[in-house]
Design a protein around this nucleic acid. Structure first.
Length: 274
DNA sequence: CTGAGCACCTGAGGGC
DNA sequence: TGCCCTCAGGTGCTCA
């Protein structure tokens, strides 16, 4: 479900709400996610106060005083919302983090591809458990130069490359197709074949598209909702994703679909010649 | 090392 | 109504 803009939308909402709240307890109804939910570590969060809500790549980070950080990844279908403590839980409401104001942060995830961890960040706030993660696309260190040098001699399709979290984080299947359309680059082209100029263009478009998507509250296809249940408005802006056979917004050629890395990929054969 | 394929899990929607 | 198939915004494993 969520790519960087969707996670950022959730983070922004939680940031306005959670800091200063004290955790009073947890309720775990189903432990079996991608990895088992660490029940004991979560219980140890009781009586700690939330200090900050952050994002790294597609991970939500909830920092507590005394050091521990609650890490949540939403997988494909995860959602977080604020519920009243004691409000009846649905079948896929796996975890509640109960708060001292009578509310709880409720994690739901039908497909169970999500992840919940409790970790200890280092002095810089970095979390080694997240593995090798590329720069944030909206940061200054994600540059055309970086992209160009990293991609030399690589034969992988550019779409696979920009979805690889070790190259750039936060771009998922929707925004990969969308950014390549806006940059007029064919998703299948070997990334190593892109010249400096096109690398620069792609980097700029990635920044642009993600920024716009954040500004509109993310993309709701079927199951992304904000913390308050609202839908993201970026779905209206999608130019190729899910538009197989429909006319290209630029040239009116039908949008085509193919599979790359096992994922549906949408592009305009006319506008994205190479 | 790279790239490809598949597994993880449940639900929604289409065709019959 | 029901069955069966395909597909779904992510990641991480195995294999060649």
């Amino acid at each position: 479900m969520p790519e960087l803009p969707e996670v950022e939308t959730v983070v922004a909402a939680l940031r306005a709400h959670l800091p200063g709240k004290r955790v009073t307890g947890v309720a775990v109804r189903c432990e079996k996610l991608r990895r088992p939910i660490p029940v004991k570590a979560l219980q140890n969060l009781a009586d700690k106060t939330i200090s900050e809500v952050r994002r790294r790549a597609k991970y939500l980070l909830i920092d507590l005083n005394d050091g521990p950080t609650l890490v949540i990844h939403l997988g494909m279908t995860g959602t977080l919302r604020l519920a009243a403590n004691g409000e009846s839980a649905g079948r896929h409401d796996h975890l509640d983090l109960q708060l001292d104001n009578g509310e709880c942060l409720r994690f739901r995830d039908p497909r169970k591809f999500g992840l919940v961890m409790v970790v200890k960040p280092n002095e810089q706030g970095e979390i080694k458990e997240l593995g090798e993660l590329a720069p944030e696309p909206l940061n200054k260190d994600f540059t055309a130069d970086y992209f160009y040098h990293l991609s030399r001699k690589r034969t992988t399709p550019v779409k696979n490359f920009i979805m690889d979290q070790r190259r750039v984080v936060g771009v998922g299947n929707i925004y990969a197709s969308e950014t390549l359309f806006r940059a007029r680059i064919r998703p299948t082209i070997a990334v190593g074949k892109l010249g400096k100029k096109r690398c620069r263009q792609l980097v700029n478009v990635i920044k642009e598209v993600l920024t716009e998507a954040i500004a509109t509250g993310g993309t709701t296809i079927s199951d992304f909702y904000g913390v308050d249940g609202s839908e993201g408005a970026f779905a209206r802006e999608l130019q190729v994703y899910g538009r197989t056979g429909k006319p290209c917004v630029a040239c009116h050629q039908p949008i085509e679909k193919l599979t790359l890395g096992g994922r549906s990929t949408f592009y305009c054969p006319q506008c994205q010649k190479k």
